[in-house]
Design a binder for these strands. Sequence first.
DNA 1: CTTGGAAAGTCAACAAGGCTGCCATAAAAT
DNA 2: ATTTTATGGCAGCCTTGTTGACTTTCCAAG
Lengths: 167, 167
Amino acid sequence: MQDGGTTGGGENLLFLTDEQLRKGIEAMFFAYRGFTADPDRILAEHGYGRAHHRALHFINRVPGTTVSNLLDILGVTKQSLNRVLRTLVEDGLVDSRVGARDRRERQLTLTEPGRVLERALSEAQRARMRAAYRAAGPQAVAGFRQVLEAMMDEGQRRAFSGLREGG
Amino acid sequence: MQDGGTTGGGENLLFLTDEQLRKGIEAMFFAYRGFTADPDRILAEHGYGRAHHRALHFINRVPGTTVSNLLDILGVTKQSLNRVLRTLVEDGLVDSRVGARDRRERQLTLTEPGRVLERALSEAQRARMRAAYRAAGPQAVAGFRQVLEAMMDEGQRRAFSGLREGG
DNA sequence: CTTGGAAAGTCAACAAGGCTGCCATAAAAT
DNA sequence: ATTTTATGGCAGCCTTGTTGACTTTCCAAG
């Protein structure tokens, strides 16, 4: 059992006060800005936005994935994704080919230039994350991950965990 | 480079592998969606967006704050904020009055209807956060906060910490 | 007092990326 | 063969980010 305080037989629930929750909320807000700041700079140089980053990231993670699958993961609508995918394909960063089994589907993979940009973006983001992890230490990181997972919606958690098996 | 193993007298650095960092990055992405999902639903009922939520939140936190101060906290441009503020003032949720000392400034406060909506939004968000905190436990929460603070930009961290003293 | 610069805030115009809704094509079911 | 269902593309709208020009106010130098 996680305890925390040293009250008689009960847990110390000070970490659940509205004040503590508010601090957590604001920390989440400010941290997310830091989290996206470095990739955003690189993207801006290429005339892309965060939506492009997300597409590149998950196509890299699940090569050969379909538009539908990507829609499920990203939780946006078709047009939002489609606009982004179209520019990435036009610019030669993503390869879109008609599905092997089902010809309605498109199978998406990164081209070599696509991989290059993806690596630049993810390395920038990892550097920030690595610095934060190192500063906070392994135990803090474990807690960080626990809270984040508990904060997800059910469907999101499944998308998150399900990312192990390829598309 | 990435070590991980249990080398001689060194710490265990497995939590700094690219794989662990990637999981943290994806967890951050999915968790942030959960984090905003509940307020988003309430906002949509009122025809507002996240930008309105942020404005209401920080005006509530720092009553009498100015537009400039809010710009510093939120890190957006004047027009982005101004558009949102204008609708909130028109709708009677925010009171904007000429500054007492400096008449160029506007002092912003929530009206009673503004406070009602702010409470609804923040209670929805706190409920999610409370559930996550409870599920993860106090030690995890401490780690969560440490990693988030380490992830912020310097300026953001100052805005975050500086929110103690009023505007 | 006047003038000139800096600061606060408003607004116009544009771009990115959310959204819904409609359509074409391919597959599956009847 | 025909109807239904699924994938994905496209048109058009809205929020919210951007830059840049403008007004009002303050303050400091002359």
